[in-house]
Structure formats: C-alpha cells, structure tokens
C-alpha cells in the first residue's frame, strides 16, 4: 500500500512538473530554471557538508569557472556549447585537485575559512583577468545552448533540460551515498580517527568529493551562462557561495533529495519577500534564522517530523 501511495505521489509530481510550464508565467518558469541550476550546484556543496562534514564556501568559484568557460569557448572561440561544458568541468576538476589536495588537510573552521578565501580569490581573478572574463563589463552575447542542433532557446525548453539533469545528478549522488564510498564518507564525518583506522583514505576521499562538487558547480555555471546569455563578476561573489551553502543547510544537510527543497527555498523565498521592498533581505535573514532554529534537521527533517506526528494523531 505504501509503495502504491508513493508511486502515485511520484506520478503526480512528475505530471505537475511536466505541466507546470504550460500554466506558469514566464517569470515563474525562470525561477524554476534557477532552482534547477541551484539544485545541481547545491548538490555538490550538500554532498560535502552532509556526507563528509566539510563546509565548502568556494562553490561560486567553480560556478564562475563553468560560466566563463562556456562563455569564452562559445563567444571568443566559436566552438560548440558542449565544448564549453567539458572545458569548464575539466578546468574545475583540475583546480579542485590542485587546491583541494593541500587545503583539505585542514578541518573544521580552518577549512571553511580556506574555502571562503578561495571564493574571494576567484572573485578577484574574475575581476582582474578581463582579457578572459570581461571584468566588470562581463561577457555578453553567449549563444543559447544547442545540443546536436537542438537549441534550448526558450525558458520552457531550458526548464525541460535543467530538471532532468538535476534529477540525474541527484540519482547518481543518491547511489553514491548508499554505496561503499558513501559509508566511508559518513564514517569520516562522524568519527574521523575510527574511519582512518578502518582503512578509509580520508584525504583522497575528501579530494575526490571536492572534485565532484567543483564539477557540479561548473555544470550549473555553464547552464547558467547559456541561459542568461550575459555574465559578469557580480554573479560569482562570496554571496553566491553562501547561497549554495544555504541550500543543504536549509534542506537538512544529510538529505540528497532534500537539496531540491533547499534550492526552491533560496530561489523562491527572496522573490516572494521582494514585495516588501527594502526590508526583504532582512526578512529573508529572519526566515533563515527561523528555519535553522525551529527545524534543526532542515526542511526535510521538519517534514518527516510532521508526517510522523500526523501518523500518530491518525492512529
């Protein structure tokens, strides 16, 4: 019965997702596209935070690398879009190995601060290297994403592309977390010395996960660049890194699928609050404080508790 109910719920969700672009305004479709992008980028940060216990504040760096790679490869070099995706992910992976290998020897606050520094350095470089990034002027005229001749040139088309990609990476991440490396990651998070004694090569595993996180950030950045057609350094600041970190924090850091809820929260709540004018950022801060204090296990943990409460009431 439970299985049947779950399947029906899933079917309803898929139907709602498929029909949404037909019913929603352009603005809302935009927001859903961004939520999809943030799901992809936030997943990397979520895997590090929830499974490995690593606070990563450098995701804007890799988001930027993906975006600038796609922009440079398509606008300056005139190469196909997919080349930009590959270049961005490769560059991100290499940079993640180069900086991650030494930095990931740190732990706790020191590691968080080191990743924050990476984000800051990245932002300065995006600003200074204007021959590559266009500096404050940015890069415009980025072509719409085209895969094998099919152009994703409307918000609806991008919506139907971004979300399957998001679901695919979530599925892969879910498999990973349930597999042998996932057990090792969580062991490392809960009791590092014991994990080490049991043969977990923590430094290698942390670096590998940092690389995966960077590649997801880059993927999201490339999709973002093609979607908005214009990018500048303002899109890749430390605030963006913090927003990526908020996604798993709000969702409940250990939840892979909860990343969707976190991404929807950081996309839609500021938008809903923007009607309140200048005070909207304060209200968003307040909303975050409420979620973190009232729902220590995040939105997903809160929903679980609510479901259990309802079940008990109904029994």
């Amino acid at each position: 019965m439970n299985k049947l109910r779950r399947s029906l719920l899933l079917l309803l969700l898929v139907l709602a997702w498929a029909l949404a672009p037909l019913l929603l305004s352009r603005h809302l479709i935009d927001l859903f596209v961004f939520a999809g992008l943030f799901t992809i980028g936030g997943l990397g940060v979520g895997l590090l935070l929830g499974q490995c216990g690593i606070v990563n504040l450098a995701q804007a760096l890799f988001y930027g690398i993906g975006a600038y790679s796609s922009a440079y490869v398509t606008v300056q070099l005139g190469l196909p879009s997919l080349t930009g995706f590959l270049a961005g992910m490769l560059a991100s992976a290499l940079i993640a190995i180069a900086v991650g290998w030494p930095v990931l020897r740190l732990t706790g606050f020191f590691l968080a601060l080191a990743t924050l520094a990476l984000s800051l350095i990245g932002n300065v470089l995006f600003f200074e290297w204007d021959w590559l990034t266009g500096g404050t002027l940015g890069i415009g005229g980025i072509p719409k994403l085209s895969i094998f001749g099919f152009a994703f040139d409307t918000p609806e088309r991008v919506y139907y592309l971004v979300w399957p990609i998001a679901i695919l990476v979530l599925l892969l991440a879910d498999n990973l977390v349930r597999g042998r490396p996932g057990l090792a990651m969580r062991a490392m998070r809960d009791a590092a010395p014991a994990a080490e004694v049991l043969g977990v090569d923590m430094h290698r595993l942390k670096t590998a996960m940092f690389v995966i996180c960077a590649m997801l950030g880059s993927l999201a950045g490339s999709l973002f660049a093609h979607y908005v057609s214009y990018i500048s350094v303002q899109s890749f600041t430390v605030e963006r890194s913090i927003a990526f970190l908020l996604i798993p924090v709000v969702a409940g850091s250990a939840s892979v699928w909860g990343i969707i809820a976190g991404a929807l929260f950081v996309t839609f709540i500021p938008e809903l609050l923007s009607g309140f004018g200048d005070i909207h950022q304060v209200l968003f801060g307040l909303a975050l404080v409420l979620v973190v204090t009232l729902l220590p296990d995040g939105l997903i943990g809160g929903a679980d508790r609510l479901a259990q409460l309802l079940k008990r009431r109904m029994a």
């Binding site: 498999n175 349930r178 597999g179 090792a184 062991a187 977990v200």
Partner: peptide, 30 residues
C-alpha cells in the same frame, strides 16, 4: 568512536571497507 548518525549495521559495514573494491564511479552507476 562509533559513527553516531549511522545505523548499527552501517557501522559494522564500514569495518569491511578495506576489503571493498567499488569506487565512486562504480557506486554512482550502481
């Protein structure tokens, strides 16, 4: 030093980590 947020079975499974082979890619692709 148990893995507090993991189940008892998962804790003991980590004890077999050194005997395992499947890496990140194989696990992702199941």
């Amino acid at each position: 030093k148990v893995f507090e947020r993991m189940s008892v079975l998962e804790n003991v499974m980590v004890g077999l980590h050194k005997d395992g082979r499947s890496g990140i890619l194989a696990s992702m692709l199941r």
